[in-house]
Amino acid sequence: MHIPDGFLDPKTIITTAVISAGALGYGIKKVNQKLGERQVPLLGLTAAFIFAAQMLNFPVVGGTSGHFLGGVLAAVLLGPWAACLIMAVVLIVQSIGFADGGLTALGANIFNMGVVGGHTILLRLCSRKEMRAPYPPRLSFICCHSFLAFHSSGFCIRCLSTCCIGYLPSTCSSSSHGWRAYAHWHWGGDYSHCCGEHRPGNQTGSSQHLLCSSKCH
């Protein structure tokens, strides 16, 4: 499930929408400069594959499920800016066509999965040479990074990004339980318990509540 309408406050909606719109605008410019002619169909193809793969929820823990996100796969194949565009296409179709993800939360969803997902720090660690290799890149490379991205983008990276932006959802649970519950269902309890014990309700608030609302799959 992507973030639906009604979960985020106007401040969050506007901030993320502006950032995502900026990223998409810059992305279009970059794609125009960098994308080779024979990579043009690959943009649609990657988007289609990500759409299909996002339908495949798998059980995670304690009666919840998760699915592949795709931002990093797209970034590995076509670069981070093309990844923003690809994720935007997927998310817009999902929101307008399938009622998955709210129209007002589109900016936040694109930010989470496209902008942050496509620019994971991990990606910067890959060798430049490999990034420039003609597609398809080595399968092991894609698998490895997609796997890492699944773990990182789901939590750490989103935590980082949400802390930096500092947006605060008004409708999310106002107690620390929101954060704990989120961590619990994402990571299977251990982390949330440890977190809950060491930080008994006096968190700085925003970043944690944020995280709760920025969960997007």
Partner: peptide
């Protein structure tokens, strides 16, 4: 696909 709810 798993019918379970997602984390959010």
């Amino acid at each position: 696909a798993s019918p379970f709810p997602t984390g959010l």
